[in-house]
Computed example of a mutant assay.
Amino acid sequence: MRHRSRNTVSAVLVALACLFAPCGVLAGWAAYGLADTGRYVATMAPLAGDPAVREAVADAVRDGVLAEVAAGSPADTGAVPPLGTVGPFVHDAARSFTRTEAFRAGWEAGNRAAHDAVLRALRGHGGPATVDLAAVTTPVKRQLVQEHVPLAERIPVRHTAVTVLPAREVGRLRRGYQLLDVAAFWLPLAAVAFAVTGIAVAARRRVALTAAGLGTAAGGALLALAVLLGRRLTVAAPPGTIPSPAAGAVYDALTATLRTAAWCLVALGLTVSLATWLTSRLRRPRTTTPPQTGGPTGP
């Protein structure tokens, strides 16, 4: 009965450890990866050279320019700009711009400004997250001027606040961010503590260690599967007007570390389980058969 109670407690603790391990990895990835501006910008920077992202930016620039042209047409004369003729030229110009260093500078500045604004809102005390467009257009203008692009000096640098996170969503997201920050610290510690305690109190520690390894591997596999399903859902229904290829590229860049961590859990769990099984096989005593005697002895 005593051994049964110990094994029950051990099984519960090991199960909790295997549950907390992938949850801790997920929380740590979000808190220390996505919530760090430097890491976020470094992760997003290579996407400036991704063809799908460049094409999405070129489409957005074309639509924005054509909307401005349409809005600026004289209403009293009924003149309509030849958008069907202008559109391809604008798109080609925007596509060429996405291959320049100025675009890379603007891409990095835009991501940094947006990320800083969101973090300030989540860590502050209310109000929407806004980005000053001057912080984005200034490095782009500077780069274009250095490259002697015609009329680059006349590009206006306006201090216009653009909302990237509405005030009505800040409160809910702030509570989630605070909970995530706490979970990222305590969940990994709890997983290790539960695993060590569960193995220590087990009547058969080798079996408990094997179970902990297999459970950790299963948790890592489930986390990797969740990342894969998340990508399919993101590509199937991308946020806003982002095309599916660009959304997939962004998702892959942001979750690269998470995928690696998930497969590290799988490798760690399988390694522990295999090592435990091999050591148990090597330490198992060999059974020896007693020597057989000769034929029957005489009377």
Rank of each mutant, 00 (worst) to 15 (best):
M1C: 02
R2Q: 12
R2P: 07
H3Y: 13
H3I: 10
V9C: 15
A11S: 15
V14C: 09
A15D: 01
L16R: 12
A17E: 01
F20R: 12
G24T: 11
A27E: 06
A27L: 07
A30K: 04
A31F: 14
Y32C: 00
G33C: 07
T43W: 00
A48D: 10
P51I: 06
D59Q: 10
V61M: 13
E68M: 08
A70D: 14
G78S: 02
G78T: 02
A79H: 02
A79M: 12
V80D: 09
D92V: 05
D92Y: 08
S96A: 15
F97N: 01
F97M: 06
T98I: 09
T98Q: 07
R99N: 10
F103S: 01
R104F: 01
A105R: 15
A105E: 12
G106T: 07
E108Q: 08
D116Q: 13
R120I: 05
P128Y: 08
A129E: 04
T130E: 09
T130W: 07
V131R: 09
D132V: 05
L133A: 14
L133H: 05
A134D: 14
A135R: 10
P139K: 01
K141D: 04
R142N: 15
L144Y: 04
V145L: 09
E147Y: 05
E153Q: 10
E153H: 09
I155E: 09
P156Y: 14
T160S: 14
T163K: 12
L165D: 02
A167K: 13
R175C: 06
L180I: 04
D181T: 15
A183W: 09
W186Y: 14
W186H: 07
L187H: 03
L187Q: 01
L189T: 06
L189P: 03
A190E: 03
A191I: 04
G198Y: 01
G198A: 07
V201Q: 04
A203T: 07
A203V: 00
R205P: 07
R205W: 02
A208I: 05
A208Y: 06
A212D: 02
A212S: 11
L214P: 01
T216S: 04
T216Q: 06
T216G: 05
G220E: 09
L223N: 04
L223H: 11
A224Q: 09
A224L: 14
A226I: 11
V227W: 02
V227I: 11
L229N: 03
T234N: 12
P239N: 10
G240P: 14
I242M: 10
P243F: 05
S244Q: 05
P245Q: 03
A246K: 03
A247R: 02
A247H: 00
D252I: 02
L254I: 06
R259F: 14
A262G: 01
W263P: 04
A267K: 02
G269S: 03
L270V: 10
L270K: 00
L274Q: 04
A275K: 04
L278Y: 11
T279I: 15
T279C: 13
L282Q: 07
R284Q: 11
P285G: 13
R286A: 13
R286S: 11
T287K: 14
T289C: 04
Q292Y: 03
G294S: 13
T297E: 15
T297G: 14
T297C: 14
T297K: 15
